[in-house]
């Protein structure tokens, strides 16, 4: 299965996910307050595939 995957095809998808993760983490360390503890958001951003960074951006940030 793994050998059949065309990595040239999947690489951009992974790259975008990594970029989103990095942006979310940078933003997380810069902001003072988030909804809920910061360490929880680190785990969510790192370990929930695709949706983690999006979740942080839309509900993790305190809109103030």
């Amino acid at each position: 299965m793994i050998s059949q995957i065309n990595w040239a095809l999947v690489a951009p998808i992974i790259a975008i996910q990594v970029i989103l993760m990095i942006i979310a983490l940078v933003d997380l360390f810069k902001t003072e307050k988030t909804n809920g503890p910061k360490w929880m958001w680190v785990l969510i951003i790192l370990f929930i595939n695709i949706l983690g960074p999006i979740l942080y951006f839309v509900i993790g940030k305190k809109h103030a």
């Binding site: 095809l9 999947v10 951009p12 998808i13 975008i16 996910q17 970029i19 989103l20 942006i23 979310a24 933003d27 695709i50 960074p53 999006i54 951006f57 940030k61």
Partner: peptide, 21 residues
Amino acid sequence: RNYKVIWIPLVFVLFGLLQPV
């Protein structure tokens, strides 16, 4: 400043790429 300019387009590109794959 709050990275919306980057992450919103990236999310759409990600969903756009995932569907055909």
